[in-house]
């Protein structure tokens, strides 16, 4: 990993020296133990030596693409004619970040030509909560994040600069958590969902941490037509159901929502379900293919009608 970090720093300083980027988004050392955190460096005002700030280790779990959209979002009053040209962003990506970036490109939120993607090989990120429980910091496999255990995209493709190295093997069962949950009784599932959601404090961290949640006005914040109340159980359930459902066919399975939650609500059991259904029903995965069409933006005449109610003695 040190080797990858060194190469990343050299690459970043080259990009700065050649003035090919205005910003570099990467990771820096955090203030707590076992923590790396996102950093956004304005390289127009700093020299190539700032690349020494960048780190790459097993704690770089944040999805950095969450910062991209705001660089390119049109201003509320509309873009002025003499506005400055859009900025060029150098972005450090691992597999899940890249999947989110491609989502933003597919959804035309971010212009590909303004991005310089630096792809890093990922061996999985460590889960601080697991480390606290297991105590054994060195046992990587035991402390790896659940999302990384199910990752098939640790080997990035289609980036501008790729640093090669060890990546994760593609796992066998991708949706075990969903299958186990599906096997439980309905009452059990509802009770679990309610139990998890009852801890929600509506801090919106799950929404804010998600790279796909970029709506200018979230349905949960609408005031003119107020959809959600002030946090009764049903309001909170609706908030989560709709927030997760909005990620159907868009979720990059990075688990940023799950990690951001201060109450450690098990969101992944539910986000995974939509990923599984989208893959099984429509054959779509948020992969590295830039040209693919998001499944809910299109349709096929062969889509299943099996969920349709047929009246018993039809007319």
């Amino acid at each position: 990993m040190i080797e990858v970090q060194n190469q990343m720093r050299i690459l970043a300083s080259d990009l700065i020296r050649q003035k090919r980027v205005d910003f570099i988004i990467g990771y820096e050392q955090g203030t707590l133990a076992h923590t790396s955190r996102p950093c956004i460096i304005d390289v127009r005002t700093s020299g190539p030596e700032v690349s020494e700030k960048l780190v790459w280790n097993s704690y770089c779990s944040n999805n950095l693409s969450v910062y991209l959209q705001k660089f390119f979002a049109p201003p509320v009053q509309g873009r002025k004619k003499d506005a400055a040209p859009p900025l060029r962003i150098g972005l450090i990506v691992k597999g899940c970040d890249l999947r989110s970036v491609l989502n933003l490109i597919r959804e035309k939120q971010v212009p590909r030509e303004n991005l310089i993607l630096i792809g890093l090989p990922c061996t999985g990120m460590l889960d601080k909560k697991k480390m606290e429980i297991n105590k054994d910091e060195l046992d990587i496999e035991k402390n790896i994040q659940d999302s990384c255990l199910e990752c098939r995209f640790s080997n990035v493709k289609g980036v501008d600069f790729e640093i090669t190295g060890k990546t994760r093997e593609v796992p066998g069962d991708l949706y075990e958590v969903v299958r186990l949950f599906e096997a439980r009784t309905r009452k059990d599932r509802l009770a679990y969902f309610e139990k998890e959601i009852s801890r929600c404090i509506r801090c919106n961290a799950c929404r804010q941490a998600c790279p796909s949640c970029y709506c200018r006005e979230c349905f949960a914040d609408q005031k003119d037509m107020k959809w959600l109340g002030s946090g009764t159980m049903s309001d909170t359930m609706i908030y989560h159901l709709i927030r997760i459902f909005h990620q159907a066919g868009r979720c990059a399975e990075c688990d940023a929502c799950f990690r951001a939650c201060p109450e450690e609500i098990d969101l992944r059991t539910f986000t995974r379900k939509l990923a599984k259904d989208v893959e099984e029903l429509f054959g779509f995965v948020t992969d590295f293919n830039r040209e693919s069409i998001p499944p809910l933006s299109t349709f096929s005449s062969g889509d299943s009608d099996s969920f349709i109610t047929e009246p018993e003695e039809g007319g």
């Binding site: 404090i201 801090c203 919106n204 961290a205 804010q208």
Partner: peptide, 13 residues
């Protein structure tokens, strides 16, 4: 605040 996500964790906790 460049990296702030704009959630309410800090204030609610």
């Amino acid at each position: 605040t460049a990296t702030c996500l704009g959630c309410g964790v800090c204030t609610y906790l």
